[in-house]
Simulated scan of single mutants.
Amino acid sequence: MLNGRIVTPAGVVDGSVAVADGLIAAVEPGDAGTDVIVPGFVDIHTHGGGGHAFTLGDAEAVRAGAAFHLGHGTTTLVASLVSSPFELMRTATAAYAPLFHEGVIAGIHFEGPYLSAVRCGAQNPAYLRDPSADEIAEVIKLGEGAVRMMTIAPERAGALDAIRQLVAAGVVAAIGHTDATWEQTRAGVAAGATVGTHVFNGMRPPHHREPGPVFGLLDAAPVVCEFIADGIHLHDGTLAFAAGVTGPARAALITDAMDAAGMADGRYELGGQAVLVADGVARLERDGAIAGSTLTMDAALRRAVGAGITLADAVTMASATPARAIGLTDRGAIAPGLRADLVVLAEDLTVKRVMRGGAWVS
């Protein structure tokens, strides 16, 4: 039994959580201490952490990086790549698929290479190109279910067909790194896109006469919008406003973390480009563009609460909503019958203990 203030879908309950056979057995009101018990975090957009990069096709680096994030409460993690040559896409898929089937990761996310050159951000412009139906089909087949999500700029030639292809294959289509108009964005949503990749970042900024992709995604009922809650990618006021527009059921906290997460400042690499990390902020050496983050999900939760989002809503954004966005219905909340992925937090919302599948993480 775990005692504390339990954040459930129905609200915060003082009491205990019972676990049996790797599942949540019951939530019972009663005496509680000062600990806060929340569902395990679900990060659907992560490029690395703890000094380990997910962008190079190295399976052991993914295993080690997943372990690093697990220590920060992320019990479900999707390994994200960046724009790269197709050979690396294929190599990484083959290398990471066994980790997916083993349960180390919840899948692979291709952030690119079918993105906008104008809004490439930290994506390597040398690798950007129009969507290829053959490339998409090959990695999906090779992954045997491991390819979970792909981010596409809907204005690129062939993008709408690519979105339809992904959806037909059971892969989540996301819109991001895009210079699309509002109309082009909504065409991508109509084609089946259901996630907005780190909304606001890597996108044409909104304008009252040209709303662009930001408004097109925030206002699209089927779309879950990712937000990087580190105070760098988004001002706290922007985060609170955007989450207020979408509601917690359509807002997903992500880290967009690179291998520098949890590491000292210094020189790193992302997609074949030099990255300098100073004061915990990662930027491309060539032009100063923000290059992912050094964020962890527990820090994202604290930031969201600090921005004025209620604890219950922030927890939904860190767990249930991202889980649902990638089709996982067996986790993401504290309710009987769901997987016992739990994080015990101190009063200041720092991590004390992590349980995954009913087992404590050492």
Results as ranks from 00 to 15, higher is better:
Asn3His: 13
Arg5Lys: 09
Gly22Asn: 11
Gly22Arg: 14
Gly30Cys: 09
Pro39Phe: 11
Ile44Asn: 12
Thr46Asp: 04
Ala53Asn: 05
Ala53Pro: 15
Glu60Tyr: 09
Arg63Leu: 13
Ala64Arg: 15
His72Gly: 02
His72Ile: 07
Thr74Gln: 10
Val78Phe: 10
Ser84Phe: 01
Ser84Lys: 07
Glu87Lys: 08
His101Ile: 06
Pro113Leu: 10
Arg119Asn: 11
Cys120His: 15
Ser132His: 07
Glu135Leu: 12
Leu142Ala: 13
Val147Met: 09
Thr151Val: 13
Thr151Ala: 14
Ile152Gln: 09
Ala153Tyr: 06
Ala174Lys: 03
Ile175Val: 13
Gln184Thr: 12
Gln184Leu: 04
Thr185Phe: 03
Ala187Phe: 06
Val189His: 08
Val195Trp: 01
Val199Glu: 10
His208Asp: 05
Pro213Phe: 11
Pro213Ser: 13
Val223Thr: 04
Phe227Lys: 04
Thr238Ser: 13
Asp265Gln: 13
Gly266Ile: 14
Gly266Asp: 07
Leu270Val: 00
Gln273Phe: 00
Ala274Phe: 00
Ala278Thr: 15
Gly280Gln: 12
Ala289Cys: 08
Ser293Glu: 05
Leu295Gly: 12
Thr296Phe: 00
Val305Ile: 09
Val305Ala: 01
Ile309Leu: 11
Ala312Gln: 15
Ala314Trp: 03
Thr316Ser: 14
Ala335Trp: 11
Gly337Lys: 06
Ala340Asp: 07
Glu347Gly: 12
Asp348Cys: 02
Lys352Ala: 10
Met355Glu: 08
Met355Trp: 14
Gly357Ala: 11
Gly358Trp: 02
